[in-house]
Amino acid sequence: MAVYKAEGVVLGRRALGEADRVVDLFTREFGRLRVKVKAVRRTTSRLAGRLEPFTHARLLLARGRALDVVAQVEVLDGYADLREDLRRLSYGWLVADLTLQLVPEAEPHPEVFALLVEALQLLREGDPVVAAGWYALRLFGELGYRPASGRCPSCGGEAGGDRWSPALGGFCCPRCSEADPGHLRLGGEAAGATRFLLQASAQEAGRLRLSERATGRVVAAVVAYAEARADRPLRAAKVLQALDR
């Protein structure tokens, strides 16, 4: 059977039949993949603990009929410490959901893979809310719909304020924002942070300190923007509201 190697991060998984699982991976080489893991739910499976969400691993995959099958997993980083902190875990799920909803399957995006690995590091070491916001804003750019930040995407006018329109495509001018009932006023701090994160490196993002109020608004802004692009709600964002109190 043909086998191939990939380096990937586990985004999620669900049961398939009695003992198997389908795992959502984001790989450096092939982008987002769905693969099958056999008998992973049995306690004797050596693969189960190695394919938990957020695990960064080197994989050996075998070509299968409908789905390719995981043959071997070598863990590079299990991110076990994320699992001890509900807040980091919650924003980790938001990062996973953004990736699942926005990146099409089987399209190589090595630059998104690099962002994802940096976001996981930031989730572990920094403010998890900033980490998720940074990842989302940079992801939009890599996927070709970077939010407008200086010029209004609708009329080309001055858009230096705090009016954020997911439908129009980012920061927009006061006049155009009035035509979009879904626009948000982010306030000065969150608007400044959003503009900063749009072009920040992971290290720069890690040094950003924000008030709780502003981080909440940055998250609301990126979630609304992602939902407008994906044209469906982010499930993880809904649950996040209940967890992050």
Partner: peptide
Amino acid sequence: AISPLDGVGPE
């Protein structure tokens, strides 16, 4: 169990 990707929250 709480499973945000499946939309399952504490409530």
